[in-house]
Amino acid sequence: MATLREIRRRINSIKSTQQVTKAMKMVAAAKLRRAQEKALAARPYGRKIEEMVQHLVATVDPTGEPLLKPREPQRVLLVTVTADRGLCGAFNFNVIKQTLHRIDFHKDKEVSLLCVGKKGYDFFAKRDFQVVHHFIQFFNNLDFLHAKQISRFLVDYYLQDRTDVIEIVYNEFKNVAQQNLLIEQYLPLQPAEFEEQKVRIDYIYEPDRETLLKELLPRHLEMQMWRVLLESYASEQGARMTAMENATDNASELIHDLTLFYNRARQAAITKEITEIVGGAEALKTG
């Protein structure tokens, strides 16, 4: 049986762990709020740019624009978006698992990977996968520039004809406790996205439509990437919040049990001492 001192030591150690998890939960909550605000602020821009792209695509011959033209999918580039850090429940592993599924799904094609987030990179780089590039350790000061960088890399990669399809595996933020794992096609842009527009308006274009589209598409893709990063970051913080809350609860429960155990042991020790004294006294009296 554990001695009283050992139990006390354990209780103290659990208490300090609990303090850490509590603090992490609070930090995650604050970061989550900021991420959500950013995601919210970015939404109107994304919507507007999509509207414009739709307008233009409806009136332009899409086969002239390489970013719109589907190719025979022989090679697939999977972009896996994980977090830079752990301690957020199954968040990272869910993305990794989904990516592995997807690789399996594409097994008749040539699959390569691009890792966004350190955790995914650590996993895939150590194993036998073809990781073409990685963007890691930037989520802490996430900025639109990062989305730009990643998007540029992907567009260049696609235009250099090094892959036929680019897909993104990422977490979409649903609420604090829930994330949706999604797989989205990034390139080529799917015509299904551009459904028939409501009204055909005769715009004046300056410069011409093709040039405009060439300017708009990369921005649209950057915005798309920005949204993915924000969603993933918000999900990560949400997942961490939940995980840390659970950890804090578990710690409370452990402390409660151990305290009970400690008191019982203390009581037992006292009782034992009393019995010993009484027994000793009795022995002296009769002797």
Binding site: M52, H55, L56, I201, D202, Y203, I204, Y205, E206, P207, T211, L212, E215
Partner: peptide, 19 residues
């Protein structure tokens, strides 16, 4: 500032998209 020069939009301008 349009890429083809500065322009001004007033009431009842024709539908227009510019870079």
């Amino acid at each position: 500032p349009g890429v083809k020069g500065r322009f001004q939009i007033l009431y009842q301008h024709a539908p227009f998209i510019s870079h």
